[in-house]
Amino acid sequence: MIEWVTLHILEKYNFWISMLIIIIGLSACIVKENFLKKLIGLSIFQTAFFLWVVSLGDVGRNILFTWGLKTQTPPIIWKEAVENGYIYANPLPHVLMLTGIVVSAATTAVALAIVIRIYQLYGTIEESEIIEKEKEFEKMGVM
């Protein structure tokens, strides 16, 4: 029982905390009225997902038993590291998430441009006020 708890819950604290931050960011994306707050929630959600994927390539997870006796190194291999049996992090998730960070910056830029355009059109960036103004526009026959 203790071994099961240690193996599946305590050692994988990165996964649990990243899931918690994913829930926070996604709920902010749904609940918040302000569009900039929605975008901040979206970027927090993206970063937490990247944290989860990079944690999958993390091989030094047995540290709660050994307390740092055999921690992982960055994925650089040199002679002493091979002789002393160092373990290094899996570099594949790092590369994938490197692409993801750049794409998330690009999507944030496009979304901010759309927010500015919405403010020019409606005069507000609160969601409920925009829905009211849309109804007014429909009555006036503008849109």
């Binding site: 990079v54 993390d58 960070i101 910056a105």
Partner: peptide, 27 residues
């Protein structure tokens, strides 16, 4: 801490630098 040094400095440059500057420009 996770050994992902390349992701760390991309995040510090893009996430903390460029993204914050874009949001300031929008604000």
């Amino acid at each position: 801490q996770l050994g992902a040094t390349d992701v760390a400095f991309t995040e510090a440059a893009v996430g903390a630098g460029a993204s914050t500057a874009l949001m300031m420009a929008c604000l």
